[in-house]
Design a protein around this nucleic acid. Sequence first.
DNA 1: TCCTAGCTTAGACTGCGTCTAATGAAAGAT
DNA 2: ATCTTTCATTAGACGCAGTCTAAGCTAGGA
Lengths: 139, 139
Amino acid sequence: MSDLVTRLRRHQWRMTPQRRVIAETLDGAHVHYTADEILDRACERMPEISRATVYNTLNELVALGEVLELNFDGRSKRYDPNVDHDHHHLICDGCGVTKDVHTVADPLDWLPGDERHGFTVAKASITFRGRCPECAANG
Amino acid sequence: MSDLVTRLRRHQWRMTPQRRVIAETLDGAHVHYTADEILDRACERMPEISRATVYNTLNELVALGEVLELNFDGRSKRYDPNVDHDHHHLICDGCGVTKDVHTVADPLDWLPGDERHGFTVAKASITFRGRCPECAANG
DNA sequence: TCCTAGCTTAGACTGCGTCTAATGAAAGAT
DNA sequence: ATCTTTCATTAGACGCAGTCTAAGCTAGGA
């Protein structure tokens, strides 16, 4: 659980109580929170933490490559601490909840050379969309 | 060129000069503009057109399924009039340019049932990222 | 313990998009 | 052609997510 905190020390991060709370909130997450949701959860443990600190910290984590920034709905970004394994995302069009999923093949192999427009193609990610069980039931 | 305008008539759209200008701007586009870029181009032909009308019209076109809303950078949405064919996108990490591409397989087929978390999965889109020839050459 | 780089904070600010309420105009009816 | 109804357009206010600023605070090294 303090795996992420350990890695951050290696990055010579100044470890403050605020940063620890944010890192631990992320590291324990099984869903991908928005910055606001992370702020809420951090506030439960440290009521005076500020919005700016949460945003600063999240951006630093993304820059360090420890967290993935996701952006599916065009409104709020979500943060994915599960950066180790190659995975894709399944999103509910109703409530926006985001799950990690794994496919049986690598999509990079599906883009023929003549569709690459001379690009050096580095990675490919798939966004699956649908409705989660709750939203499917509630219209 | 008025292909899109023709289709819109079929949707029983009230055809106003503003809507025509926006539809034609989109229909002639080979790249995917942001709402602001569309507003700029529409203003060249109709200087008094308002921001609200551009946004309203774009949202209606998306709702009608005539235009695709893209959202890659988390800032501004882009609009893709090439909705006819199933396609995916290739984005340059350097300059952000976006190309339509086609794959040899449908990614929906590659998500196993036990990875669907009970969702009703409706569609899948792939985002390929890399560097365009210019950005690859310029570091 | 002290020092200093750099972190945290409240709140102002920005960019992108939406909403509102008043005015204007497209298209069917006469 | 004119009327009428209904829907579209407009300027500007508003909202949300995120960034910036300037002042104070603190982690960690000396």
